[in-house]
Computed example of a mutant assay.
Amino acid sequence: MSTYIFGHTNPDSDSIVGAISLAYLKNQLGEDCIAVRQGEISPETEFILKKFGGVKPELKTSFTGESVYIVDFSDIAQAPKDIAEATILGIVDHHKLGDLTTDTPLECWIRPIGCSNTVIKEMYDYYKVEIPKDIAGMMMCAILSDTVIFKSPTCTKIDTKAVKDLSVICGIEDYKALAMEMFIAKSQVEGASARNLNTRDYKPFDMNGTKVGVGQLEMVDISVLDSRIDELFADMKLMKEEDELHTIMMLLTDIMKEGSKILVLSDDASKVESAFGIKLENNQAWLEGVLSRKKQIIPFLQPQF
């Protein structure tokens, strides 16, 4: 019986590539593993798969009675609804420890670094398994995405070394130029619905019993969304009602200006203002230097609840 490997809901490139790269490693180690996904892929992930000939994992959202490895998360809110009915064999992640629990011992690789694929690169090195050229290229792009081309405060020397090592394997010297192509693809918003934009990289959180949703759009130039802010807010209102959220936030992250505009709808906006020492105007504010949701947003927002 196959074991399934997947990342969080509304998967980003790290989740998709992480499932692919970990599945290959586990298969080389003698386990029968299949990479799957919990949601639709983003334009950035599509770019990465096309660039390196990767195959989009099958969509699978139910895992009752299955054995699984999970990548890039450990929060119940980002897991399949029936995760409690599955057997979690392992977790590979780079976020805070979430609230998933298991009935049996498991393999855990959780590191405070910039990307889950960097952790998986360490696993390949540990087990002395050679990384194929195509998978190395996808892993390299996932790390460059998650670290915002090394600009994110989550980026470590381990991440930069992993990118350099992977660039040699996949034969791409100017990996920063490729990363800019990737972010340009990620920035494409023409024809995308407000719901698509709000959920491209959206994560729900249970903050001490309070439901909070935080999405992020990383773009080369967020000004292209200026005419669509009202549309984004209207859809955020629907999402807030549908999921019975206390607070929903969207980060519009400008990788060139190195900061984020936040859009906020909340039952108590003062919690957001207190978290970041700001005053919201029209439910918006600019956060200078903020590029990382997991290091610069969640650790400050969660204590408010």
Rank of each mutant, 00 (worst) to 15 (best):
M1W: 04
S2N: 12
Y4C: 03
I5H: 01
I5Q: 00
H8V: 03
A19K: 05
S21A: 12
S21P: 05
L22F: 13
A23S: 15
Y24I: 04
L25T: 07
L25E: 02
N27K: 15
Q28V: 04
Q28H: 13
L29R: 15
D32G: 05
R37H: 00
G39K: 03
E40L: 11
E44S: 03
E44P: 00
I48Y: 05
I48F: 05
K56E: 14
E58F: 09
T61N: 08
F63Y: 08
T64E: 15
I83T: 02
E85M: 06
I91A: 02
D93S: 08
D93K: 08
H94E: 05
H95E: 08
T101L: 09
T102M: 07
D103I: 11
W109G: 02
P112S: 10
I113F: 02
G114T: 03
G114F: 01
T118K: 09
V119F: 03
K121S: 12
M123G: 06
D134H: 14
D134N: 14
G137M: 01
G137Q: 06
G137C: 07
M138N: 10
M139G: 01
M139A: 00
M140N: 05
C141K: 02
S145N: 08
S145I: 04
D146E: 07
T147Y: 02
V148S: 00
F150W: 04
C155S: 13
I158G: 10
D165A: 07
I169G: 00
C170M: 00
K176Y: 10
F183T: 02
F183K: 00
F183G: 00
I184R: 05
I184M: 13
A185L: 01
Q188W: 12
G191T: 07
A192S: 08
S193Q: 11
L197P: 02
N198G: 02
G209N: 10
K211N: 13
L217C: 09
E218L: 04
V220D: 13
V220F: 14
V220R: 12
D221P: 12
I222S: 06
V224M: 12
R228S: 11
L232K: 12
F233R: 15
F233L: 14
F233E: 10
D235E: 15
D235F: 05
L238P: 00
K240G: 01
E241F: 09
I248L: 10
L251A: 07
L251F: 09
L252A: 01
E258W: 06
E258F: 05
G259Q: 13
S260H: 03
L265F: 06
D267H: 09
S274K: 11
Q284R: 15
S292G: 10
K295R: 15
L301A: 01
L301S: 00
Q304V: 14
